[in-house]
């Protein structure tokens, strides 16, 4: 399936609820339409973020994931259906995203986001969404985003916890390496620990909203603010992450 842009009248109808928002006009929608966003990881985080960004009118999404859809994905990864089991996630995602919004161009890459391939995978993008499930890829993405001058929107979830943080690539801002340097990542991931769909989706929706604000310039992005959601108390908390002067990513 290829992308089919809306005719002007349909474009206004499709995004009419955006135009009814305070401070949101055609310029904001056009900024979104001109944006190219790269989603690394099409699991619970990436599917939810990509669904909202594509449906909201992002111009181009590059999707990167090595996996195929399996049945244990379906409770969290609502973009996929039973009929997709066994298919590469990025192909199934492209089909479903374009079924919702044929105007969105979807580029797909089946593979891991290893550090040597990142320039090719991310290409001419405006922002990277870190929706991965492992620390090594998160660190590689942070290094790449920093060197390429790209903002990085990082989300994570496990157990009853979700977290989101946006990294500005400019010097003087913290990076994922600074967060990693806290040595506070619990030794868990969703293979060994449970996770609930709405908890992962909470992180991804927050992440997508930040990306939407960044692209449209509808609201400022609070770079380096760590937003944490505790699903047991239903509380969001946020803390500022200062630069770690010992960070191996941004201080070397």
């Amino acid at each position: 399936m290829s992308n089919v842009p809306d005719a002007p009248q349909q474009w206004y109808s499709r995004y009419s609820r955006h135009f009814l928002l305070e401070n949101f006009d055609e310029t904001h929608q056009q900024r979104l339409q001109q944006s190219h966003l790269t989603v690394i990881g099409m699991g619970g985080l990436g599917t939810t973020a990509a669904q909202h960004l594509a449906a909201s009118g992002a111009g181009t999404l590059s999707l990167v994931d090595a996996d195929t859809v399996c049945i244990s994905n379906l409770p969290r990864q609502l973009l996929y259906s039973e009929a997709d089991i066994g298919r590469p996630k990025v192909f199934a995602a492209r089909e479903h995203l374009q079924a919702n919004n044929p105007g969105c161009i979807i580029e797909t890459h089946v593979g891991q986001a290893s550090s040597c391939e990142l320039p090719g995978l991310c290409g001419p993008t405006d922002a990277i969404l870190d929706c991965t499930d492992n620390i090594q890829t998160r660190l590689a993405l942070s290094r790449y985003a920093r060197s390429a001058g790209l903002p990085l929107f990082s989300a994570a979830a496990a157990g009853y916890s979700a977290q989101v943080i946006a990294f500005n690539p400019a010097p003087g801002h913290c990076c994922y390496g600074c967060l990693y340097g806290l040595n506070a990542i619990a030794p868990q991931h969703c293979l060994s620990h449970g996770v609930l769909g709405p908890v992962v989706a909470s992180a991804a929706l927050f992440q997508a909203l930040q990306v939407l604000y960044f692209v449209t310039r509808l609201a400022p992005v609070s770079w380096g603010s760590l937003y944490r959601f505790d699903a047991r108390t239903l509380q969001w908390l946020n803390h500022q992450l200062p630069v770690n002067l010992h960070c191996e990513v941004c201080q070397s």
């Binding site: 699991g43 989300a155 994570a156 977290q163 967060l179 990542i185 619990a186 991931h189 996770v195 992962v200």
Partner: peptide, 10 residues
């Protein structure tokens, strides 16, 4: 103070 752990899953 807030005392917390971080997560890295997705």
């Amino acid at each position: 103070l807030d005392a917390f752990t971080l997560v890295a899953g997705g």
